[in-house]
Amino acid sequence: MSIQHFRVALIPFFAAFCLPVFAHPETLVKVKDAEDQLGARVGYIELDLNSGKILESFRPEERFPMMSTFKVLLCGAVLSRVDAGQEQLGRRIHYSQNDLVEYSPVTEKHLTDGMTVRELCSAAITMSDNTAANLLLTTIGGPKELTAFLHNMGDHVTRLDRWEPELNEAIPNDERDTTMPAAMATTLRKLLTGELLTLASRQQLIDWMEADKVAGPLLRSALPAGWFIADKSGAGERGSRGIIAALGPDGKPSRIVVIYTTGSQATMDERNRQIAEIGASLIKHW
């Protein structure tokens, strides 16, 4: 067993022997301040990774656009098919120029040779490549099948209805392509620590998230040296922004954090800054 596999296998073990965790309302004060600064709703939840206990939450059962955070769930569904012998990570998928959609920095470079399922998941999570996500959605049967996968996990809230990039439209009061912070946090925890996926697939999923290259201005910008984070960000229309993450000190994750916002007129930089400040408060009061 590799060191990384050992780390993920012992996530519940280490967490069980940690000192009790206590909620700190100071972080919620910052979440509410972010709402004021952005002029928009902000949803927040913080779960203990081992027990699933909610440590703090704000608007945990209000719907927010998922945006690209759905790509972690998508690759979880792909990995479940791999575990069941219905898919192979090494299978190569070929596609054409007509398949390319807006923001496809990886797939646009491989029109000639195609990409493997493993490479597509890596591109979808680490670079948020939209064509990679659409190609992977095709392998599982489309958005409705991802929703069905989530329902089978016990998540009857999260739903995907459309493809990239239309799913980022974020129309107010439109339930399409949305989740709730509580539902997303619980589902992410199941994917990373539950028995739904094999140990190898859980490790692969967290490795992809740990290698995320496009979430630097968010929670990662607030992390002290030595902290662990595996995350996936999302951005959408109407001032929408979000991030889902597993993080913790001492090089291992111990909490799940989900943050979503929508309806702001603020710039992307300002949305990023507010999420980073929430992260800084979380870490300060850990």
Rank of each mutant, 00 (worst) to 15 (best):
G263R: 14
W286N: 01
A170D: 05
N173A: 10
L218Q: 14
S221C: 05
M209G: 06
T147D: 04
G279L: 05
P65I: 01
E169A: 08
I244G: 11
I259K: 02
G52S: 06
I45C: 00
R271Y: 11
H151T: 11
L218H: 13
N98Q: 00
V42Y: 06
P65C: 04
L188W: 12
G52F: 06
T267H: 13
K284P: 04
G239A: 13
D129E: 00
I206V: 13
G141A: 12
D155V: 03
V82W: 00
E169C: 14
S57A: 05
V117E: 07
L89M: 07
H110R: 03
L74N: 07
L135N: 07
V258A: 08
L223H: 02
R241V: 05
K144I: 03
I275S: 13
L136G: 12
L38R: 01
D113L: 00
Q86C: 03
L38T: 01
E169G: 10
K109S: 15
P181I: 01
S57Y: 11
A266N: 14
S51Y: 00
E35S: 04
L223E: 00
R255I: 04
L89D: 01
I206D: 13
T261I: 13
E164T: 01
G242I: 04
T131P: 05
A225Y: 15
R220Q: 02
H151R: 04
M180D: 09
R220T: 04
G279Q: 03
I283A: 12
T198I: 14
A245D: 04
S128Y: 01
T107L: 15
A84M: 10
P60Q: 07
A40I: 15
D48V: 15
V214F: 14
V78I: 01
T27D: 05
I278F: 01
M209R: 01
I229G: 04
A266T: 04
E87T: 07
Q86I: 10
C75Q: 14
L120C: 00
A246R: 06
R81T: 08
V101T: 06
D174R: 04
L55E: 14
P253I: 01
G142F: 06
R41T: 13
E119F: 12
G236W: 06
D33N: 04
R91W: 04
E108Q: 00
E237R: 07
S68N: 02
H24K: 15
R202V: 06
S68R: 00
R118A: 01
I45H: 00
R202Y: 05
E195L: 01
D113Q: 00
D99N: 06
P253A: 10
T187G: 13
A77Q: 00
T262S: 05
A34K: 14
L111F: 14
S264A: 04
A84V: 10
A246T: 06
S96P: 05
I93H: 02
P25A: 10
V82A: 12
I140G: 11
S240W: 03
I140W: 02
P224F: 08
L89T: 10
Q37H: 11
I125L: 00
L199Y: 02
P60R: 08
R220V: 05
S68F: 15
R81G: 06
E277A: 12
Q204M: 08
D174C: 04
L192P: 14
T186R: 01
G234Y: 09
L160C: 08
P60K: 03
F228L: 03
Y260R: 01
V157I: 09
G76D: 01
P172S: 08
S254K: 11
N173W: 06
Y103S: 12
A132C: 10
V117S: 14
G194L: 13
A266Q: 07
G239Y: 14
L28M: 15
R81V: 05
I229F: 04
T179M: 03
L150V: 15
A222H: 09
M153C: 10
H151L: 11
R41I: 14
T139H: 04
D36H: 05
A246M: 08
L223G: 11
L136I: 13
G142R: 10
D83A: 10
N134M: 11
K232C: 15
G239S: 13
R189G: 11
G242R: 02
R255C: 13
P60F: 07
E210F: 12
C75H: 00
S96I: 00
G251A: 08
W227A: 08
Q86T: 15
E61S: 04
A280F: 13
D174T: 04
G52T: 09
E108P: 00
Y103Q: 05
R255G: 04
A211N: 15
P249Y: 11
R91G: 10
K71L: 00
G141M: 00
V82H: 06
E26L: 14
Y260A: 04
A132L: 01
D129T: 00
A230F: 12
R162W: 07
A40M: 14
V78W: 07
A266M: 15
A124M: 13
W163H: 12
D48P: 09
E35H: 09
I259G: 11
A148G: 13
M209I: 08
E26F: 03
Y95G: 02
D207W: 08
V31H: 14
E35I: 02
D129H: 00
R118Q: 12
E35M: 08
A245M: 14
E108C: 06
V257E: 04
V214T: 14
N152D: 04
W208P: 09
E166A: 10
